[in-house]
Design a protein around this nucleic acid. Sequence first.
DNA 1: TTGAATTAGTTGCATAACTAACTATATGCC
DNA 2: GGCATATAGTTAGTTATGCAACTAATTCAA
Lengths: 147, 147
Amino acid sequence: MPNNHFKRGELYSVINGMASTAVARRLQKNFRNAGLEITIEQWSILYHLWKEDCLSQQELCNRTFRDKPSITRLIDNLEKQAMVIRMPSKTDRRINLVCLTDAAKEIQNLTIDLANQTMSEALVGVKKEDIEIVKIVFQKVYDNLIL
Amino acid sequence: MPNNHFKRGELYSVINGMASTAVARRLQKNFRNAGLEITIEQWSILYHLWKEDCLSQQELCNRTFRDKPSITRLIDNLEKQAMVIRMPSKTDRRINLVCLTDAAKEIQNLTIDLANQTMSEALVGVKKEDIEIVKIVFQKVYDNLIL
DNA sequence: TTGAATTAGTTGCATAACTAACTATATGCC
DNA sequence: GGCATATAGTTAGTTATGCAACTAATTCAA
């Protein structure tokens, strides 16, 4: 039994029960209050497309740390809401390029402002250098488990 | 537009896409490989009951940062698998006390070992003091958003 | 003591996640 | 060229999550 047993268990439940839920739920609420009918999961797809448009579904899997079926359904739902369209790649017919519509471009600034505002609320009292440490720890965890 | 705009956006997607999924998915896989038919969400309930048995559903909500319907269904599924039973409180008939069965007690040591092992794999190369910082940051985030 | 407000838990509906099994296209080796 | 293998994406089935609306029991105050 490792000697740091309980600490790790505690960390585990913190990560699992709190990290994504508290921030995500608040951001979702802020979207709703602003009249935006979009989930944070859908927004996270748009967020990556705003950085670089017309990515393949596989590339979205890599960048959002989701598996392929999850991306398929998220794109399905975003397509229903006319936020993105699937464009068959001309060089590889297996690939769908996921491209933004004008509707998605219109909500970019508003939603990113809301996200920044939410992160500001969430990070009150947290030192900048500690945020950097959290990012580094998460990246290491991801590398340890996935690569 | 806040000047630390992109950093926070990045942190957001890291928290949302990676934190719970990578560790949780690995732990789930380790459970499955050990022949355990239990989800990590169900395990997180058992984890709190091993620390203190016969908690109310509301108390489990507080300790696992979940809402009431989530707890209701997790307990439903755990009850189907005969891991817990609902016992009506004698002092307040609105309350269900959720108590462990022998089957749950049997898997306690094995699953906690697997969880510690998974956290050890996940935290390779991460300094102990950085883990503490992550915990403190998450607690602050939670306090900022919920309280 | 009765009636409003609070608290504990459940149910219905929608979205999202993972696994496993599947189709279709592309690549690479003989 | 042709077959094995790899890659991109979809579908089906189960579990989990969030919200809103609901029932039942308790508390508290007029």
